[in-house]
Amino acid sequence: MPKISLTVNGKTHTHEVEGRLLLVHYLRDTLGLTGTHVGCDTSSCGACTIHLDGKAIKSCSLLAAQADGSSITTIEGLAPDGELHPLQEGFKEEHGLQCGFCTPGMIMCAADLLSHNPDPSEQEIREGLEGNICRCTGYHNIVRAIQYAAQKSAVAV
């Protein structure tokens, strides 16, 4: 069994894992970080989006072993405890969620977008979220939430 060592939200973890263990299951079941969701399990919905070495990826489509040696940020690590990241604040203020299932993935994907395009147009936001599906909101308020965060600060992730 491969032995992996990786940093998740600033903390280093070392585990022996099965080769076939998916990263999302490692995060949720081994580390107990259940903020990362599994929506479709077929690489389509983006609910499982996290940052691998600073880039948004779908953790249901990656083996935990592929992340060996990497640095990961999940929704739990986006802001220090007790504080809201501007994107989290934006989703709250602009009513960017209903059931909330897609929200962690939406926020992690939006954080990637804002990290290289701090002032995106509405079109760029919609294109940036191409890999994230929401069955509740109709997306308008999600776009507004991201515009809120972009205005609030040049987001550094």
Partner: peptide, 9 residues
């Protein structure tokens, strides 16, 4: 190709 996440991997 795909979406941001797919293009990153």
């Amino acid at each position: 190709i795909g979406d941001t996440q797919v293009r990153n991997m």
